[in-house]
Amino acid sequence: MMTEISLNILDVAQNSVSAGASLIEISVIADTESDMMSVTVKDDGCGMAEEQLSKVTDPFFTTRTTRNIGLGVPFFKMSAESTGGRFKIESEKGRGTCVTAEFILSSIDRMPLGDITGTVHTLIVFNADIDFIYCYSVDGRSFRLDTREFREILGGGIPFSEPEVSAYIRDYLTENKETADEGIIL
């Protein structure tokens, strides 16, 4: 099991990376009044055929060859459903995949969101060729990061892994998150 929801997000987004996505959209939307947190990871990767999609929440199904179990999606599904929430995965071959997990915020069985800033930073910096859109919203206060805007400013010559740029991205995520959630720990 993962210890944080943000690690589930990292894991599912790594599937998008493996699926050859060029754009990955991640959103974390929490609403304390409705006691709900919704997490979405959407990509434009290779997608899955119907038969593969029907098996993807089975822990004893995987497309990889190193071992014959695949726990990433089942872990994410279980972490949402154990709170009384819902899990949905939609995919179309050649078009991409969208994974949505809804968590009941107050459930005693809900894992903390954890270091979502670290997760998004890791994804952006270590996947130089992929663009990310990240939305974080708490009770209607939100911010959005779009690496295509960063790329347009930087041009082709300065990679996100360059220390100053990497530090800027981390600070951008940290400071905007604090403004959006006003210090609430999800």
Binding site: M1, L7, D11, G70, L71, G72, F75
Partner: peptide, 10 residues
């Protein structure tokens, strides 16, 4: 992968 992330690879 899932195994690495769960064990603390990030």
């Amino acid at each position: 992968a899932t195994c690495g992330i769960a064990a603390g690879a990030r």
